[in-house]
Each structure stands twice: as structure tokens, then as C-alpha cells.
Nucleic acid binder design. Structure first.
Length: 255
DNA sequence: ATGTCACCTGGTAGGTGA
């Protein structure tokens, strides 16, 4: 079965291409970030008509997440329990025998900023909660827009990006701390071609020049690791006429 | 190349966030 994550940068704008993409890829689960929709505006009817269940958690203008699935989701959780947050960034559910967490990690803006401090606090809260979730759900997938490039090989120009947002030591330490809970980066389980990114800035012809970052990730718990058959970035939707700045990332699980 | 996009407010441009 296929699981996927995609920062759509406004589901209102991207709904037609998301439905096209669902029809082609037929994932068991798709988590979305930056839906930018209040809950009353979520396009449940269209998604249901296409054949997917959906649960969602949004707000006006910013953030917003959703989880689409072929099978009905249960035990839905919105945001990080115990972490008071006005921003809609997390949706989790049990589906097809997996605990799936979809997350839109804070951007952080710039090291030293208030938004960076919020990102650090959010990451700490996420880590504690995921650690807890793993005790209840050994078969767990944590995927979404992490807004962290884990290593220099995930950055088109590591020199220019050194110490910049997405690439700071603090963010990368948090990423490694998530791995240390018993998660593995599905993308790095395989030999990959160089210069694979999941995000390209809209500016500066970045996509045409393939100047991007790998900041969208799928982490699977160690019991799932033997089932991971592939992990890829699908660049095709980034070539659409009105693309999101992110491409979807997919993982294929056997069994 | 300061090269974009989406959304808001408050209007038909400017600010914010990414």
C-alpha cells in the first residue's frame, strides 16, 4: 500500500489537481498540509465522491491539515495533546492497521525569532507525544512538511543555506531526536539519485534550476522498516500550471 | 534579478507568511 504527504499550499486552489493526483496514484492514505481552510470550507463532498474518507483540522488563512484514506480512520487526534496551540498543524488517526500522524511543522522564519522559539517548543512537544504514541502504536508513520532539511545533501546549496532556517543545528538535532525514538527516514532506506528535493521556492526559477530542499519526510517506526519497499518524491505535480511549491512524497509498504 | 504565490484587509493596493 501507498502512503503520501503533500503540502498543497491552499486546498481551495489545489483541489482539482489533488483529485487528479489521487486518481492516478491511488494512495491508501494522503496527509495534507497548508489547506488554509476553516473546517466549514473543507471540500468533503468532492473527496468523498472521489472515494476517500477524510478528517480535517483547519483555520482561517494559515496552516490547516487533513488526512484522506481509503479505509475509515479511527481514534482521530487534532494537534498535540497537552500542547496549547492556536495553530492547526497536526492530525492523527489509526487507519489500515497503522497509526498515521500528519504534521505541518512550524516554518520558524529565522533563527533567534519568536517564530523560531515557537518551532523549538513545538518540536519538543511533538517529540514527547510521538514517544508516547509509539508505546501504544508500534506500527506508526509520522509524515508531513517538517520544514527541516536533515543533512547538507538535502540542500541544493549547503554553503548558502548554512545556519539558515530549515538547516540550523538546532532543527537538525530535533530531527535526529525523532529518529532516536525508533523512527527511520524512509527516503534514506534506499540509494537515491542526488539532488532530490521536495520543495522549490516559487521565486528565482528555482524549480527550473532544481534549486530546492528536501523538507517533506516520511518517518516509519522500526517495526515497519522491513515493509518499506520504496520512497519517492513525485515531481510531476510541481510541473502543473498552478503548482504548489511542494511536491508529494510517497512511501510504498508491502504486506 | 528585489525574479512568486496565496490570503487578508479594505478596497482595486499593501501587508504578511512562506
Amino acid at each position: 500500500m501507498k502512503l503520501a504527504t503533500w503540502n498543497v499550499n491552499s486546498l481551495a486552489v489545489r483541489l482539482p489537481q489533488m483529485l487528479d493526483w489521487l486518481a492516478v496514484q491511488q494512495p491508501e492514505v494522503l496527509v495534507l498540509q497548508e489547506t488554509k481552510l476553516t473546517d466549514d470550507k473543507f471540500p468533503q463532498a468532492e473527496i468523498t465522491a472521489a472515494g476517500w474518507h477524510s478528517v480535517w483540522f483547519g483555520q482561517k488563512t494559515y496552516n490547516g491539515v487533513a488526512l484522506l484514506s481509503r479505509d475509515a480512520p479511527t481514534d482521530v487526534v487534532r494537534n498535540i495533546p497537552g500542547f496549547a496551540d492556536e495553530q492547526a498543524r497536526v492530525i492523527a488517526a489509526t487507519v489500515s492497521g497503522l497509526r498515521v500522524i500528519g504534521a505541518y511543522f512550524p516554518n520558524g522564519q529565522a533563527p533567534g525569532s519568536d517564530k523560531f522559539a515557537y518551532k523549538m517548543a513545538w518540536l519538543q512537544a511533538l517529540r514527547s507525544w510521538v514517544q508516547d504514541e509509539l508505546t501504544r502504536h508500534p506500527r506508526l508513520v509520522l509524515m508531513g512538511d517538517y520544514n527541516i532539511a536533515p543533512e547538507d545533501r538535502d540542500v541544493h546549496d549547503p554553503v548558502a543555506w548554512a545556519g539558515q532556517i530549515h538547516c540550523t543545528d538546532e532543527e537538525r538535532a530535533h530531527f535526529r531526536a525523532l529518529l532516536s525514538l525508533g523512527l527511520v527516514d524512509a527516503f534514506r532506506l534506499f540509494e537515491q539519485p542526488p539532488r532530490i528535493w521536495s520543495w522549490w521556492d516559487y521565486r528565482n526559477l528555482a524549480f527550473r534550476k532544481n534549486q530546492g530542499l528536501r523538507i517533506d519526510h516520511i518517518l516509519v517506526s522500526t517495526p515497519l522498516q522491513p515493509l518499506v519497499a520504496a520512497c519517492t518524491v513525485d515531481k510531476l505535480p510541481r510541473k502543473n500550471e498552478r503548482p504548489s511549491d511542494h511536491a508529494p512524497v510517497l512511501v510504498e509498504l508491502t504486506g
